[in-house]
Amino acid sequence: MTRFEIESRSARETKAWARRLATLLTGGEIIGLTGDLGAGKTCFVKGLARGLGLDEDRVLSPTFTMIQEHRGRFTLYHIDLYRLEVARLDDLGLREYLFAEGVAAVEWFERLREAPEIDYLAVRIEYAGANQRRIELSAISDRYAALIGKLKTRFG
């Protein structure tokens, strides 16, 4: 497994790292976000949106609607499984978002029953103080390991 650990000192830094990551995306990626309430998952997705050339102010918490689409360089599918204890791909029609040409950013990804079978970039955000966060990117597959490698060499 390939890992990259980032110490973020503010929401601004968290967004900046997400923005850098977004500049490396080529479409078709799945980013699975985990972390407690208030950790900064939506904040991270705002950064992704910015890096994809989208208006980050339009990226709102998708908790209520579960899925929000933002069209840009790629379509960003912002998905939130918070309200589901266990989500299954077919229950929500999630396949068409996850396995599309766009970028899927899924909050509370661990609640997806099929998560272990899916190839994705894991982003775990943990509290490390009031404003500080520990962000860990990890990947099993070569594809996402390469992505982490690029992020490290260019920005690390």
Partner: peptide, 16 residues
């Protein structure tokens, strides 16, 4: 709102 809706904040804080 730039992030969460007010009703969502109520629900999430109740859960916390």
């Amino acid at each position: 709102t730039r992030d969460d809706a007010a009703g969502e904040a109520f629900d999430k804080v109740a859960k916390l």
